[in-house]
């Protein structure tokens, strides 16, 4: 046997003997690498000496109180809530209408429409962000609340549709037919039969859309003009100019909200829905 062959044989035996161990170590190392930075932010939010002292000597809740008294930070929280609470119902309504239409009617161009709905996920965010800002500038609308809401709707529609559409597709149509046989019209059928059955998917889609909107940065950054300061925008300008300990607190707020929302969405739908369409 050649030297190369025996080296290969040795490698095969090595993988056979140690493969599972290497695999399990990879899982542990990667999960540590993913979570360590996040855990550090949480720890630093309790650090008595502020942002630039690692590791913290003393722990305190002081920065949480400072955060609560920081008007700019609190107002950014409210701005974000306002935008997301307005954008999410619009997105869910549009995604539900689209899903109902695509799954119940036969027409040409269906796959083109599905492509169009997925496209905002694929085109680089900075390109669409700039294009939206150009658009609102050209039609003399400029930045402001409704421009940001429109941008958030475009941004979140794919996520809601990706969850709601498959549920419509797999929904048992015979239930709807039974309802119509019993004399209900299409609207009554939708309201009393279809909607209750697809409600979990609509809620999950809504939560996901809300989470994306809540975290949205790039579209908002370009579209907002001046004045509209959402939490991610506030965080961005703090990091760029002057990091104060409240930044850690704001990060923790983000973390808690996002993790809770995603966990609820996962409980309502199944995990594979959240990650891929199948």
């Amino acid at each position: 046997m050649s030297a190369l062959g025996s080296a290969f044989g040795w490698l095969e035996r090595f993988c056979h003997n140690y493969g599972p161990k290497i695999g399990r170590s990879t899982i542990v190392i990667v999960l540590l690498a993913l979570w360590l930075p996040i855990v550090l932010v949480v720890v630093m939010s309790f650090a008595a000496d502020g942002v630039l002292s690692f590791p913290p000597d003393n722990l305190t809740l002081e920065w949480y109180f400072v955060f609560l008294e920081n008007d700019a930070a609190i107002s950014s929280v409210f701005t974000t809530m306002k935008v997301s609470l307005v954008a999410t119902p619009i997105t869910v309504a549009l995604a539900t209408m689209l899903s109902y239409g695509v799954s119940r009617y036969d027409f040409r161009g269906k796959s083109a429409i599905q492509g169009l709905v997925t496209l905002p996920i694929i085109v680089p965010l900075i390109v669409v962000g700039v294009a939206l800002a150009l658009f609102f500038g050209m039609i003399n609308v400029g930045g402001g609340f409704w421009s940001v809401v429109a941008a958030h709707v475009v941004r979140t529609i794919p996520f809601a549709a990706l969850i709601i559409l498959p549920t419509f597709m797999t929904f048992d149509r015979s239930l709807e037919e039974a309802s119509k046989d019993l004399g209900a019209n299409e609207l009554e059928t939708f309201w009393n039969v279809t909607l209750p059955n697809i409600m979990p998917a609509i809620v999950a889609g809504g939560i996901l859309a809300f989470t994306v909107s809540f975290n949205e940065f790039i579209y908002t950054y370009f579209v907002r003009g001046t004045g509209m300061e959402t939490m991610p925008i506030y965080l961005w300008s703090r990091i760029q100019h002057n990091v104060t300990p409240e930044v850690n607190v704001l990060s923790v707020v983000f973390l808690v909200v996002a993790i809770l929302l995603v966990l609820v969405a996962v409980l309502l739908t199944n995990i594979s829905r959240l990650t891929m369409r199948s």
């Binding site: 930075p37 996040i38 932010v41 940065f217 965080l235 990091i239 973390l255 996002a258 995603v262």
Partner: peptide
């Protein structure tokens, strides 16, 4: 699903 800016920070 954690905020992108938070992860960068």
């Amino acid at each position: 699903w954690t905020n992108y800016i938070v992860r960068m920070y």
